[in-house]
């Protein structure tokens, strides 16, 4: 089902016949095979319950597939020992619909926390956090608490936290789900900017307007099956979408 690769670029994510079923429920993912190149921006679309979140959880190694293989940056993450998982996650950034910020920490502390807990020295924290806050446009709000920020600003903080360690892959699970269209547009621009730095971005979304306007690669899931993989796709089925 996956598109043919015409150009040889380094693979960042590769799934081979991946299936996953949760206990006592329908299969969440059925025999998924695909690849995502380094530096690609991919929209993951589909109705609720189609398997998007399971897909992201597998990439995060929060879940293991029942069968199949998953490679990230050439590394087999299914057979990765449990103690190596934190080191894998240092190459992954994550953004969620509900931001998941720590309310008792300031913007600066929230972003710095991601570096502190992986043992980065203070000097690195002092130099990298202001840089990334500058990138997301919140340099002047470093001392604010999340409750003092708008939804869009909170999501920017979450993106800054996900990106501060310069991950190879950024996974975003409906990052604009709680935001109005104008703010969503700003978040999209920010993710696009991060993608331009060479970070591979996989974004699960229901935002039709956004997907249609960006015309980037779209992977569509339906009841756990991969039903569409288009290079410059739109939210709904688009026969005109170029296939690699």
């Amino acid at each position: 089902m996956g598109p043919q690769r015409l150009v040889r670029t380094p693979l960042m994510i590769q799934l081979e016949h991946v299936s996953k079923t949760y206990k006592g429920s329908q299969p969440a993912l059925k025999d998924i095979s695909l690849f995502i190149d380094k530096g690609e921006f991919v929209f993951l679309v589909g109705a609720s319950g189609s398997g998007k979140t399971t897909f992201l959880r597998l990439l995060l190694r929060e879940e293991l597939p029942d069968s199949g293989k998953i490679f990230e940056a050439g590394r087999d993450i299914v057979n990765l020992p449990k103690w190596r998982v934190p080191y894998l996650r240092r190459n992954l950034g994550c953004v969620f619909q509900d931001f998941r910020l720590l309310q008792n920490k300031t913007v600066f502390e929230n972003v710095a926390f991601a570096l502190e807990v992986i043992g980065r020295p203070k000097s690195v924290i002092r130099s990298q956090v202001p840089q990334v806050l500058e990138l997301v446009g919140l340099a002047d709000k470093a001392a604010r608490f999340p409750s003092e920020l708008s939804g869009g600003e909170q999501q920017r903080v979450a993106i800054a936290r996900a990106f501060v360690n310069r991950p190879l892959i950024l996974l975003a699970d409906e990052p604009t789900g709680n935001l109005d269209p104008k703010i969503s547009e700003g978040i999209m621009q920010l993710l696009d900017r991060i993608n331009k730095t060479g970070t591979t971005v996989v974004m699960a979304t229901h935002d039709k307007a956004l997907v249609d306007r960006m015309r980037l690669r779209v992977i569509e899931l339906d009841h756990g099956s991969l039903i569409r993989d288009q290079l410059r796709g739109v939210y709904g089925i688009d026969d005109a979408g170029a296939v690699r």
């Binding site: 995060l60 103690w83 934190p86 080191y87 894998l88 996650r89 240092r90 992954l92 994550c94 998941r100 720590l102 926390f113 991601a114 807990v117 992986i118 936290r161 360690n165």
Partner: peptide, 8 residues
Amino acid sequence: VMKLVGAT
């Protein structure tokens, strides 16, 4: 959050 960002 610690788990997500790779704390051991």
